[in-house]
Simulated scan of single mutants.
Amino acid sequence: MTDKMDDDGNYEVGYRKPPKASRFKPGQSGNPRGRPKNAQNVGKLLAAALAQRITIREGERTAEVSKREALIVALLNRAIKGDGRATAQVLGLIQDQDRGEAETRQEGVTINVIDRFDDSE
């Protein structure tokens, strides 16, 4: 490590010891502009894209649905036509849905057992 001279005297510059000239001044932020307002992560962008409405046509009938619904309809149609991968995905979604409904139906009861209740302490 190198010794550098400061106004105050000797100061060792090295790992986690930056030179005084390059340190942040008191009251100065290390990120002055900060995170941009309304910065969105991938989850928010995906949710917004899936919520957009599109027009689909099934036979002679047209309907306006969200992209999420259109994806599910397309997956179901592929499964019905015999696509094995699509069928496996649909069955997995059904199992996940059934498992989620079963968890919400269970009513939890908490029982606290007290071996000895001593109020004298």
Rank of each mutant, 00 (worst) to 15 (best):
residue 1 M to Q: 12
residue 2 T to H: 05
residue 3 D to L: 15
residue 4 K to I: 13
residue 9 G to I: 07
residue 9 G to R: 13
residue 11 Y to G: 01
residue 12 E to T: 14
residue 14 G to T: 00
residue 17 K to F: 02
residue 19 P to C: 06
residue 21 A to I: 06
residue 26 P to E: 05
residue 28 Q to T: 08
residue 29 S to T: 13
residue 30 G to W: 05
residue 35 R to G: 02
residue 36 P to L: 09
residue 37 K to D: 09
residue 38 N to D: 15
residue 38 N to K: 11
residue 39 A to V: 05
residue 44 K to Q: 15
residue 44 K to P: 00
residue 45 L to M: 04
residue 48 A to C: 03
residue 48 A to H: 06
residue 48 A to Y: 02
residue 48 A to I: 01
residue 49 A to W: 13
residue 50 L to E: 01
residue 51 A to T: 06
residue 52 Q to F: 00
residue 53 R to L: 06
residue 55 T to G: 03
residue 59 G to W: 00
residue 60 E to P: 03
residue 62 T to F: 02
residue 64 E to T: 15
residue 66 S to I: 01
residue 66 S to W: 00
residue 71 L to E: 10
residue 72 I to G: 03
residue 73 V to R: 15
residue 74 A to E: 11
residue 75 L to P: 05
residue 77 N to P: 00
residue 81 K to P: 01
residue 83 D to L: 01
residue 86 A to K: 01
residue 87 T to Q: 12
residue 89 Q to M: 13
residue 89 Q to K: 15
residue 90 V to Y: 02
residue 92 G to N: 14
residue 96 D to P: 00
residue 97 Q to G: 08
residue 98 D to A: 14
residue 103 E to M: 11
residue 104 T to I: 10
residue 105 R to Q: 13
residue 105 R to F: 02
residue 105 R to T: 08
residue 106 Q to V: 15
residue 108 G to C: 06
residue 109 V to P: 03
residue 111 I to A: 07
residue 111 I to G: 01
residue 111 I to N: 07
residue 111 I to F: 10
residue 112 N to F: 11
residue 112 N to H: 14
residue 114 I to Y: 02
residue 115 D to T: 08
residue 115 D to A: 11
residue 116 R to T: 15
residue 116 R to Q: 12
residue 118 D to K: 10
residue 119 D to N: 12
residue 120 S to N: 10
residue 121 E to W: 10
residue 121 E to G: 13
